[in-house]
């Protein structure tokens, strides 16, 4: 398995300081759990946040210079070129699942999947790879899990709650290599950093229909016995597939 993890120069949502993005940390853990070769890729200059990603066990990180091409195009070309793993093709691209306020991966994974013409799935919480087929588990609202198989290379957005947070150590941070690739990696690419963005006042949007999890509407119990209440909760969790029966 050869996995690329897309790393973004994120910001901590509380302090506003530069910080890694939770989903991308989860992606590192997931890639390490899968085994094989792992490479972190960031398009743009390598700030201190990249070092912090290395602390989560990522040994190699490439800061990719986009040059004149756009970010998406530059990364797609890099992935296609085989430069990431000495000519061997990339099997998997793991990303965070949503932007968190910094310069991180909001729409980028979709744009990349489109450019590469690869399938994309998000909210991944579990993964298994066997013979070119990736078997994933997707987290839907209300604790519902959905399994899916993806054939061939794909882009997967890792859920920040995925139980894959790797250990952080200063030694790994110190050890990790941050390499630059391509031209002018020390300045943001042309289509980044608000080049073609504009600030508009907030506009109320129509409410989107929520993704509906399968399942019934539940039941109302008035003053049940603790046993009956516990049984109802247990049955519901079993129905959702959150709780395994036989335990």
């Amino acid at each position: 398995m050869r996995t690329i993890i897309l790393l973004s120069a994120g910001y901590d949502t509380v302090s506003g300081r530069p910080a890694p993005v939770a989903g991308e940390i989860g992606a590192i853990g997931m890639a390490l759990a899968l085994g094989g070769e792992v490479l972190g890729v960031h398009v743009g200059p390598a700030g201190p946040t990249m070092r912090e990603y290395a602390g989560y066990g990522l040994e190699r990180i490439v800061a990719l210079g986009a040059g004149q091409a756009g970010v998406v195009e530059a990364l797609a070309a890099y992935i296609r070129s085989g430069a990431a793993f000495d000519g061997a093709p990339v099997d998997l691209v793991l990303t965070g699942r949503r932007g968190s306020g910094g310069e991180d991966s909001g729409l980028f994974p979709y744009a990349l999947a489109h450019a590469l013409d690869w399938p994309i799935m998000r909210d991944i919480v579990a993964i298994q790879a066997t013979q070119g087929v990736v078997e994933v588990e997707q987290a839907l609202p209300r604790g519902v899990r959905r399994r899916a198989h993806v054939k061939g290379p794909c882009v997967l957005g890792v859920h920040e709650m995925a139980p894959f947070t790797p250990a952080f150590s200063f030694a790994a941070m110190r050890r990790g290599e941050v390499l630059t690739y391509g031209e002018t990696a020390d300045s943001p690419p042309a289509d980044m950093a608000g080049a073609d963005m504009q600030i508009r006042p907030y506009r109320a949007r129509p409410r989107l229909i929520q993704a509906q999890a399968s399942g019934t509407g539940g039941q109302v119990m008035i003053d049940p016995t603790p046993q009956a209440a516990a049984q109802a909760i247990r049955d519901h969790l079993v129905m959702l597939g959150v709780l395994q029966t036989g335990r």
Binding site: D12, V14, S15, A19, A167, S169, F170
Partner: peptide, 29 residues
Amino acid sequence: TLMHGDVRPGAAQVLRRMRDSAEPGGRPL
């Protein structure tokens, strides 16, 4: 902690908040 990152899950969370939010509880300064 420094060589292996081998701390308890609760402590790992606190340390991450201290690194990223400069506050062990992850609360806004």
